[in-house]
Design a protein around this nucleic acid. Structure first.
Length: 899
RNA sequence: GCUGGGGUGGCGGAAUUGGUAGACGCCCAGGACUUAAAAUCCUGUGACCUUAGGGUCGUACGGGUUCGAUUCCCGUCCCCAGUACCA
């Protein structure tokens, strides 16, 4: 029994014990309630950073808590080991991507083990192994069969820095998710997964997870899916005379028989404003425009070409784009009013959304308003605030300063006058349908998921191109389509597999004739879309997951990760789960019951960007000036070069990274883990400040010391008992113990990690503050202290498992470990947690004037009497009239006096 | 601009959802132990006033509701995140 706390020694001891006994290996156990604790799997970049430590410390705390609560806990880990950095390393340093990846996994696994995270290591998965990516391909074939995988030529998001395609989600905000450079467009043939087929379900299933997910993640997802319900309206198009103009059928919108020669379809959510239309505005890329470029005047066609070029440029986020456009000379007929309208091309109309054409209603849409102002087009108000409707209707022209976008009452709208917007939308849509120029319509912002990547280090897409048979899926029995050992990787954006004949030359699965394989690989987000299923059945050679096994473990009870994946990964994973369900592998809709998004770990960075490129300087090589509040005011290098500074996500390349190994070496894994959870609420950003971690060490040392001190007491191991009416300090300590158990349990249930640590510190302070020597303490006292230290040790386990295991061994005199001993999280007893005396504040006119100690069961009347009789209070009430006394039992008394 | 979330000591942050604001920790100051230091322990630590006791102010700012507001309502300012012409 070591009396000095020596973190490294006990950490090594227990890590070894856990490994030898496979302490965290989990099997299906029908008799026990299950708990599936999951953290987002790491990309093997080379080193853990503090963000990982925070993520896994929180997950491990919950895993331990649930184990001690008697749950059968699945807590797995794996590696998201396909992806571009491996190829970057290959280009830059000539290392084989597989070697680079596997070396990194080794390093990071070691780091995780030194942190003592309680994973079931037997379930590790590696995305880059054929055993895993075989099922990426299996899913792809299933989706192909269901019409959910298809190929088409399209404009893809292209990152010119990474030389790679990006999905819409990965190009969110017009910037590459990996490198942050602007995204441009490029024409490519791509494989897509039909996520849009599940758009409605992805939205409509949100109520199933609503309580368990952060509001803002759900909101971002629904914004991203962007469902909007409205109406298609078809406008007849004419050349300036009255001859019908040529309007080709618009692809993707051919479901309507009304389309075709002479009509253009718009999408609107506000058909109630249709009497206010002053023009039709089409995107420059609109097929009607493009098909008629030769028919336009020179001025018009060159302007359209200019707009098209401008549209293709990467978006500038700062600048508001000025409205621009040109009247094409075409005319459209408003089907409601018969009015003839000009047809414009406008730079603010996007081909990718709706139908690429809008009816412009300047009075009720701000964009149309700006457009109309710019080009002097007429503005006609047709919706009014209900109380002004009558007045407005009798006026011809109203001067609006900006568009009136609210719902209201229709004016200047023929037989629809006086209807509310809601009613008019229904009636007018019905009218349009009846007369053959409209349809109900729902549009989405969500696009299908482009998964083709011109990359080597990813799952090959199991498709073969045969001259005879065309596009042929590989047979299931031929899976996996194995990645070759190596390929010429250039990083220039061509597919490396296209240069490996042994890979791409294949026999057609149908006719067995010569054929070529698809040489693109899948987006790495495919791997992470279903890995959590695989953990439940990691070695199944036939199926991605056995349905019965999945039924026991899934869904994930608690998922923890960064909210940078709020849209990308989490929408793909939800989509994939619904596909699994429709394939028949699982019976539920949502993969993650509860989601916790942890904040980033950030630190101070110092850099200069003279050459337009940022060069970072490590903080310890910079001279920093701070103001009184500790904020940096200036920074320079020792040789006097002035640097810029910012608070940014920690990373090695920025020089502000903290190496977890170093933390473990200096302070110990337990202290590092405890501190990272204590320092800030888990969902907040955490500005790394190493000073605080000392406090974690001190706390663990204090616990260690008091536990050893009291365990020396002769009565400690001899089965002390309480006669049930301990008084004085013993009673006070027992109360504190049970109050702490209650607080800590409640905190875990509500996913708080910083407050339970504070509660444990208070309890250890309470034990430490006890006077007296263990050798002379009476039995009641030893009993109370033993209870307190035992509870403290068990409750400390989720934060500092090594220390807790060692203390537990000291307390019960057995080295097998808590789980082997069937240790359970302590349970609080209400009667013991209850206070004997409580302090009641007494206020006079809402201001605190005195405090009295009373029995918790004191009645309202008694409290009131005592309050008025209180010496200090009578000073205030003397000679004044007491108007009212408010008494809240167990809380306070407030005496209201008149002056 | 729009949407969502926030603004509490020198710092990270507590506060049973209307009831003693500042728990716990960091930093800092003073003291004990020590030849000295480290470690440890003790004390103090929102601001201002006060001779003791104590008093006044204080949760971004201005109003309001209430016996009582960090908490609820209205207005203003600021910060963070998401989004960007979504028709």
């Amino acid at each position: 029994m070591d009396e000095k706390y020596f973190a490294k020694k006990i950490e090594q001891k227990w890590q070894q014990k856990w490994a030898e006994t496979e302490a965290f290996k989990t099997e299906i156990a029908d008799a026990m309630p299950k708990f599936y604790q999951l953290e987002m799997l790491p990309y093997p970049s080379g080193n853990l950073h503090m963000g990982h430590v925070r993520n896994y410390s929180a997950g491990d705390a919950l895993a331990w808590y649930k184990r001690l609560k008697g749950f059968n806990v699945l807590h797995p880990i794996g590696w998201d080991s396909f992806g571009q950095p491996a190829e970057d390393a290959a280009v830059k340093r000539g290392i084989n991507p597989r070697k680079w990846t596997e070396d990194n996994i080794e390093i990071m696994r070691g780091q995780l083990q030194r942190l003592g995270i309680s994973y079931d290591w037997s379930r590790q998965i590696y995305a880059h192994t054929p055993e895993y990516y075989k099922f990426d391909q299996w899913f792809f074939l299933k989706m192909w069969e269901k019409g959910l995988a298809y190929k088409r030529l399209t404009q893809v998001n292209w990152c010119s820095h990474d030389q790679a395609t990006l999905s819409n989600e990965q190009a969110s905000g017009g910037l590459c998710w990996r490198c942050g450079n602007p995204v441009t467009k490029k024409d490519l043939e791509q494989w897509f997964l039909r996520t849009t087929a599940y758009a409605d379900q992805l939205l409509d299933d949100i109520p199933q997870i609503e309580g368990g997910w952060p509001q803002n993640v759900l909101k971002r997802q629904s914004d991203w899916i962007g469902r909007s319900v409205g109406t298609y309206v078809d406008f007849e198009i004419r050349a300036s005379g009255d001859s019908l103009f040529y309007c080709p059928i618009i692809e993707g919108l051919t479901s309507s028989s009304h389309l075709g020669k002479g009509r253009v379809r718009v999408f609107t959510t506000r058909i109630d404003t249709i009497f206010g239309v002053n023009a039709l505005v089409l995107a420059a890329e609109h097929p009607v425009i493009q098909a008629n470029m030769d028919n336009f005047s020179e001025e018009v066609s060159s302007k359209i070409a200019v707009i098209r070029v401008e549209n293709a440029k990467p978006a500038d986020h700062e600048a508001e784009i000025e409205k621009d456009g040109i009247d094409t000379g075409l005319r459209a007929i408003n089907p409601f009013s018969g009015e003839e309208l000009p047809v414009w091309v406008g730079n603010y109309v996007m081909m990718e959304y709706g139908t690429g054409a809008v009816m412009s209603v300047p009075a009720h849409d701000q964009r149309d308003f700006e457009f109309a102002k710019r080009f002097g087009l007429p503005i006609r108000q047709v919706i009014s605030e209900p109380h002004l409707a009558h007045e407005h209707h009798s006026m011809h022209a109203l001067a609006l300063e900006r568009a009136f976008g609210d719902y209201g009452v229709l004016i200047h709208s023929d037989s629809w006058n006086g209807l509310t917007s809601d009613k008019a939308k229904l009636d007018m849509t019905e009218y349009a349908i009846k007369h053959g120029f409209g349809e109900e319509a729902t549009t989405y912002r969500l696009r299908d998921w482009g998964i083709s990547r011109q990359r080597f280090w990813g799952s090959p897409i199991p498709i073969v191109y045969c001259l005879e048979c065309g596009v042929v899926p590989e047979k299931y029995e031929n899976l996996p389509v194995t990645l070759p050992e190596d390929a010429p990787i250039t990083g220039t954006g061509e597919s490396p597999l296209a240069k490996v004949p042994e890979f791409y030359n294949a026999a057609c699965p149908q006719c067995e004739g010569p054929a070529k394989r698809e040489t693109d690989t899948m987006d790495t987000f495919v791997d992470s879309s279903w890995y959590f299923f695989r953990y439940t059945d990691p070695h199944n050679p036939n199926l991605p997951v056995d349905p019965d096994t999945a039924a026991y473990w899934m869904p994930v009870d608690q998922y923890i990760g960064g909210d940078d994946h709020a849209v990308m990964h989490l929408i793909y994973a939800r989509f994939w789960t619904k596909v699994l369900r429709d394939i028949g592998l699982v019976k539920f809709d949502e993969p993650f019951k509860r989601l916790l998004t942890q904040g980033m770990v950030v630190g101070e960075t110092f850099f200069d960007d003279e050459s337009g490129k940022r060069t970072y300087f490590p903080p310890d090589a910079v001279n920093v000036t701070r103001d009184a509040k500790g904020k940096i005011t200036a920074a320079e290098t020792p040789d006097g070069k002035v640097l810029k500074f910012a608070i940014e996500r920690m990373s090695k390349s920025k020089g502000n990274g903290v190496d977890p190994d170093e933390m473990v070496e200096i302070y110990g894994a337990d202290a590092a883990r405890l501190f990272v959870l204590f320092a800030a609420p888990i969902e907040n950003e955490l500005v790394w400040n190493e000073a605080g971690i000392e406090g974690g060490v001190r706390f663990l040392q204090r616990v260690w010391r008091i536990a050893h001190k009291w365990s020396m007491s002769p009565a400690w191991h001899n089965g002390v008992s309480s006669n049930g009416d301990s008084g004085g300090n013993a009673r006070n300590l027992r109360r504190k113990t049970h109050q702490t158990i209650r607080r800590v349990s409640e905190s875990f249930e509500s996913l708080q990690f910083n407050t339970p640590v504070a509660a444990l510190m208070e309890l250890s302070n309470a034990i430490g503050d006890l006077g007296g020597e263990p050798s002379t303490a009476d039995e009641e006292m030893v009993f109370a202290v033993r209870e307190a230290i035992t509870a403290l040790t068990l409750m400390l386990t989720p934060f500092a498992p090594h220390t807790a295991e060692e203390l537990f061994a000291v307390i019960i005199g057995n080295e097998d470990g808590m789980l082997a001993n069937g240790a359970r999280f302590p349970v609080y007893q209400e009667s013991l947690a209850k206070a004997d005396l409580i302090e009641i504040p007494i206020q006079v006119n809402g201001k605190l004037r005195s405090k009295i100690m009373v029995d918790p069961d004191t009645t309202t009347d008694e409290l009131q009497e005592m309050a008025i009789a209180d010496e200090k209070i009578s000073e205030y009430t003397m000679g004044k009239e007491i108007a009212k006394v408010i008494t809240v039992p167990g809380r306070l008394v407030n005496i209201v006096i008149k002056n």
